[in-house]
Design a binder for these strands. Structure first.
Length: 113
DNA sequence: TGGTTGACTAAGT
DNA sequence: CACTTAGCCAACC
């Protein structure tokens, strides 16, 4: 068994990326929802942390916000407006750091994946 | 190498 | 209803 790594499940971070990558265009989800899908509801923090390390990867981190729809991670993007702009370019309305109609465009990975 | 920190959240006081 | 505690765990100092 040389390739133990192959059989190894993806790391927590990588799993976060896998989920985040599947968020549909124009939809958003929360850290907690992703964590829940990973079977680690109480590890929502790690999801957010994973997003911090998601730079350079194919992860639409801007579609992931906290459970209130607030853009708590906007300061981790290049410029405080980038995250907001990306969302708005997808038809998502953002006001005062909060996603409007969050409940409506919320994408629940545990239900729609 | 141990303590602090953080893009979170739910439950308790 | 505002504030605190607890759980999670990698990165950083």
């Amino acid at each position: 068994m040389i390739l133990v790594v192959v059989a190894m499940n993806l790391n927590f971070f990588d799993r976060c990326y896998e989920i985040a990558r599947q968020i549909p265009f124009g939809r958003v989800t929360s850290y907690g929802a992703i964590a829940k899908q990973l079977g680690a509801l109480k590890s929502a923090r790690m999801v957010g942390y994973a997003m911090t390390a998601s730079h350079g990867k194919d992860v639409p981190a801007h579609r992931v916000v906290n459970r209130n729809g607030f853009l708590t991670g906007k300061h981790h993007f290049e410029g405080v407006n980038l995250m907001e702009q990306l969302l708005e370019s997808e038809g998502i309305e953002v006001k005062d750091n909060q996603i409007q109609n969050f409940k409506t465009i919320f994408w629940d990975p545990s239900k729609e994946l």
